[in-house]
Write a protein that binds this DNA or RNA. Structure first.
Lengths: 232, 232
DNA sequence: ATTTAAATTAAACGAATGTTTAATTAATGC
DNA sequence: GCATTAATTAAACATTCGTTTAATTTAAAT
């Protein structure tokens, strides 16, 4: 849909040589990034081969090296291309309030991130793969730039939420961040298994219920209101 | 520590032939399972090579095929060996109450599982890798036997907890299960990154605080007690 | 119009992978 | 005590992997 085969059918089974269109170069780049995104979300970095990715993009494997240098370069470009927009949106959400008195947009961050995860199924999977990785082409960038912008900002947000009385005063901002991330990210990577084991189905209505549920879990938990859980 | 080199130093640099000890066979099996557990938790299935695993176990790569048939067999045996005990403990915890009136041991399950995850750092990682996998040597067993015994039992437990008033009546047991798993599993796979980004350190005291925190998050959430969060 | 540069392919390359084979040594059964 | 079987190694095998090269076709520049 994004790229149009300029002449004589598809891009498959071409003879070598520069193609006729003038926008082919960009189209190949985009197709490769999209194929890489899908396959790196599905399989691990090592398990997804360049031949497989090139085939999914209907492109010669050598194009990966022509456009991105090597497999690592493709992965890096893909992850920046995929995570970048979300990070920018997240940053905008968490930096908005000019005056410190303004209500911390915790609810909006939670719902916004979960909506994004629902719309782009590969996102949560790529992030968790990166969290799980002990090393890799993107590890340093992820730790230095991505993670601080995502989880790194949350403790401050939580502290402000505590000051404003939106969150209970005895909450540890760091542990609260861990729980926040857990509630927001994990459901989406568990969905394929939840479909088989818990019998859910990933409809729009379900996603809406999930977001409402997770919001309430974060603020109120699953227990009774009157907190008769004094025993421990 | 587990295997004793029977004679003349280590097992490295041996000549071919049957070793002298009579318990060597079992020792090799155990060493291979341990090495596989550590490396499959660290790297993905494809990324962890049999040569690397064999080297970590100080054993010839061919022993993997002698003892387990192939790489898949080693992975299956390792995961059964690793997940089996936890599943049995979990099953015991969730099936205990003979009479339906007995209090549902939700708190005990939560703390028990988290304690196990803290003690065996590879467990949560292996599980999440399996959750993330779209296919693999263990996928069917995981979906048919492991997942139902873990997450599959929780909805029933939550329903009973609702009947007993331990959990609020309007909680969806399925969504509650997703949140429960999220709060229990995700923090442990995020620890390595949390150490760098949030500055935490994985001490015994921290684990204790984490478990208390997660329990409270599950029952009470992070919001204020009086639930002034009427706005939405 | 001709030359030069860009974009692409097919084919080959070396390294690494999972696996098999043949040789070798010790334990076991008779 | 001898033959057989079990447990182990080193080496080779076929395949797949990421990458490079050379050829080829078109676009762009002069």
């Amino acid at each position: 849909m994004s790229r149009t085969a300029k002449k004589s059918g598809t891009r498959a089974r071409r003879r070598p040589g520069r193609p006729e269109g003038t926008a082919h170069r960009e189209a190949v780049r985009v197709d490769l990034l999209r194929a890489a995104r899908e396959l790196f979300a599905k399989r691990d970095f090592t398990a997804a081969s360049v031949r497989e990715i090139a085939a999914a993009a209907r492109v010669n494997p050598a194009m990966i090296h022509y456009h991105f240098g090597d497999k690592d370069g493709l992965y890096r470009a893909m992850l920046e291309d995929t995570l970048g927009p979300m990070m920018r949106r997240l940053q905008a959400l968490t930096e908005e309030p000019g005056n410190a008195r303004e209500a911390v947009p915790l609810r909006e961050v939670l719902a916004g991130v979960m909506t994004t995860f629902a719309r782009e199924p590969w996102l949560a999977r790529l992030i968790v793969r990166e969290v799980l990785a002990e090393a890799g082409p993107f590890r340093e960038t992820f730790i230095r730039e991505i993670a601080p912008r995502a989880g790194g900002r949350l403790p401050k947000l939580l502290r402000r939420a505590i000051e404003q009385g939106q969150v209970r005063a005895d909450l540890d901002p760091t542990l609260g961040t861990l729980s926040f991330m857990s509630l927001v990210v994990f459901p989406f990577i568990a969905l394929p298994i939840a479909e088989k084991v818990l019998g859910i189905r990933m409809t729009d209505a379900f996603v809406e219920r999930l977001i409402d549920h997770s919001t309430r879990m974060f603020y109120e938990g699953a227990g009774q209101k009157q907190s008769r859980n004094a025993s421990r």
